[in-house]
Simulated scan of single mutants.
Amino acid sequence: MPFQQVRQGMAYGDDPDLGQLIEALPPSGFRNLLEAGWRFESDGESRTAAAVYRTALQAIPQFLPPSTRAVLEHAKGAVDANDRALETFLQESLAAVRARHGNARLDRFDKCVDTLLRKRRVYRPSPSFLYFPELPPVEFYDRADFPWLDALDAAADDIRAELIEVLADGPEVLEPYMAEKVPQTRWQELNNSRRWGVFYLWRAGTPNAENLARCPKTAAALEAWPKCDLLRTGPTAVFSILEARTRIPPHVGVNNARLIVHLPLVVPPGCGFRVGSEQRSWEPGKAFVFDDTIEHEAWNDSDEPRAVMILDTWNPHVTPAERELVTALTAGVGEFYGALPDYIAGSSA
Rank of each mutant, 00 (worst) to 15 (best):
P137K: 12
V198A: 08
S281M: 11
G276A: 08
D43I: 00
T115I: 11
D107E: 11
A220K: 12
Y337P: 00
T55C: 01
A220R: 12
F89N: 11
R232D: 13
K76W: 13
P27N: 11
D292I: 08
L242G: 09
T246H: 02
A144Q: 13
A151N: 06
V318K: 07
D150M: 01
G77W: 05
I294V: 11
E283V: 12
L33G: 09
S277C: 09
E243C: 04
H262A: 02
C112K: 11
A11L: 11
D342C: 00
F288K: 00
L167R: 11
W148F: 10
T236M: 05
D303P: 01
K227D: 06
Q184Y: 06
D158M: 08
H317E: 03
L152M: 14
Y200C: 09
L265I: 06
L329Q: 09
N255C: 13
G102D: 15
F273W: 14
G253R: 02
A70T: 12
L21C: 01
F132A: 10
P284N: 06
Q20D: 07
V97Y: 13
E210Y: 04
Y343T: 04
W202L: 04
F199S: 08
M10N: 13
L163P: 05
R118F: 01
F132C: 12
E87D: 12
S126C: 12
V267G: 06
L259R: 08
A244E: 04
R232M: 10
A209E: 13
V238N: 12
S302F: 07
W282K: 04
L130A: 03
I260G: 01
I22N: 01
P250I: 02
L259W: 02
R108F: 12
A95S: 15
N32L: 12
R247Q: 10
A75R: 02
T293V: 04
I294L: 06
D169Y: 07
T246L: 00
A78Q: 09
V71G: 00
W187Y: 14
E35P: 00
D157P: 09
Y53S: 08
W38Y: 15
P136T: 01
G102M: 05
D107N: 05
T68I: 10
V79T: 07
W314F: 09
A213K: 00
K119H: 04
F3E: 04
E304T: 07
L259I: 10
D110S: 07
H296S: 09
A85Y: 02
G332W: 05
R108L: 14
E172A: 14
R54H: 11
D17K: 08
Q91A: 08
L64N: 03
V113L: 11
M309K: 05
T236C: 09
V166R: 03
G338D: 03
T313C: 15
S126F: 08
E35W: 04
P2H: 08
I159F: 05
A81G: 09
L117R: 07
R195W: 03
Y343L: 07
T246D: 00
F199M: 03
D150K: 14
R247I: 13
